[in-house]
């Protein structure tokens, strides 16, 4: 079953084409890596899929809803974790969970029960009443991810979720992503780290607003005759007219 289907999606800002006629689809439960250099158009594409930006032309269906006409329903079916840290630092851990759960319409009773469970799973029971600003960055990032999937969305969009996090925490973070995927949540993730690209089921690589490659990491390595994803990425990025290489 496809949870994301995109056809000829285009976004123009004035004369600049940020996203140029892209088409792809993502299967339910898949971990889909969305790669590209800075300015390649990943964030713009992702914002269109989340209903934050309306496309100039083309079509997109996310979680069964049209992104142009049913953006409210799209919003209710997805989770989102932004590049910038998105929890409130001056709220306590449980208050943050309750706030986001409330926005997504999770009932008070269910929120209470599941908060207990979640904190136990993360090993954060003692931090229930701590302000988020007192937690180390890695913990916050894990908490932010848990909060973004608290309402059991069918898809979660992660915009460079591991920026600035140490390797050990990144490892743990990816384990959480796998667990979410096993629960049937589709994960749509952008990243800068090429080793993380290897963890994805499939990756797409954007260059100058277009998707230049889309396949499993193993097939891409074979296709480009590269030892790792980093080399695949560099070979593709070299074609870009933007980076001056």
């Amino acid at each position: 079953m496809k949870v994301i289907e995109v056809e000829n999606l285009t976004k123009k800002f004035g004369s600049f084409t940020a996203v140029d006629n892209i088409s792809f689809s993502v299967e339910k439960g898949e971990i889909f890596g969305f790669l590209g250099a800075n300015g390649a158009g990943k964030t713009t594409a992702m914002r269109m899929l989340c209903g934050l930006l309306s496309p100039t032309s083309g079509k997109g269906v996310v979680a069964g809803y049209d992104i142009l006409h049913d953006s409210e329903k799209v919003k209710a079916s997805i989770g989102y974790m932004s590049q910038k840290f998105a929890l409130y630092e001056d709220l306590k851990v449980w208050e943050n969970i309750r706030l986001y759960a409330g926005i997504y319409g999770v009932s008070e009773k269910e929120t209470r029960e599941r908060t207990q469970l979640l904190l136990a799973e993360l090993g954060f029971e003692k931090e229930r009443n701590s302000l988020v600003k007192s937690l180390p960055l890695g913990w916050r990032q894990k908490l932010a991810f848990s909060v973004s999937i608290f309402h059991n969305p069918s898809i979660v969009f992660l915009d460079e979720p591991t920026g600035g996090v140490d390797p050990v925490t990144r490892r743990q973070f990816w384990e959480m992503i796998y667990q979410a995927s096993e629960r049937g949540i589709t994960v749509f993730v952008t990243t800068h780290y090429m080793d993380e690209a290897e963890y994805c089921n499939r990756v797409s690589i954007m260059v100058d607003g277009r998707i230049d490659a889309l396949d499993s990491p193993a097939s891409l390595r074979k296709e480009f005759g590269a030892a790792d994803m980093d080399e695949v990425f560099r070979k593709l990025a070299r074609k870009s007219k933007n980076n001056g290489l």
Binding site: C50, G51, L52, E72, K75, A76, I78, Y80, M81, S82, Q83, K84, F85, A86, L87, Y88, Y100, I103, Y104, G105, F157
Partner: peptide
């Protein structure tokens, strides 16, 4: 802080 973006993605 970027929280507005998360709020706008929410329903």
């Amino acid at each position: 802080l970027g929280t507005m973006e998360v709020l706008l993605v929410s329903p």
